[in-house]
């Protein structure tokens, strides 16, 4: 594994993604998702909303890193709030 030049932050990042996917699978088994329409212009399933949330989180982080001097933790907090809003009302 040393050729993959792991670092602690990236390991935490990928573990959380893996945990999210595992959690989503478990949630889906316990109570299957129903496609619905929230404030997004399209009707989405739970997985769609997670994907949209993660993709927009990536762009939120890029925006904060590239074009502001704010801390990356602010981007993380913003993304987390956005993800929760999206999962609940999206």
């Amino acid at each position: 594994m040393s050729w993959m030049v792991w670092t602690t932050p990236t390991a935490i990042f990928f573990s959380s993604i893996a945990a999210m996917l595992a959690g989503m699978t478990l949630w889906e088994i316990l109570s299957p998702t129903v496609e619905r329409k929230g404030f997004l212009p399209i009707s989405t399933t739970r997985g769609d909303r997670l994907f949209i949330g993660l993709l927009s989180a990536a762009f939120i982080h890029l925006g904060v890193i590239g074009f502001t001097t704010l801390s990356i933790w602010i981007a993380l907090a913003l993304s987390a709030v956005w993800l929760l809003v999206l999962m609940r009302w999206g």
């Binding site: 993959m4 030049v5 670092t7 932050p9 990042f13 890193i65 990356i72």
Partner: peptide, 26 residues
Amino acid sequence: MTVVNYSVQDVLGPNARFFTGTEWFH
């Protein structure tokens, strides 16, 4: 995943690498 790992470091050789955080992205 390896690309992601590279993007937060300055990898000079097998035993010489430094964590740079978000510097490259900036």
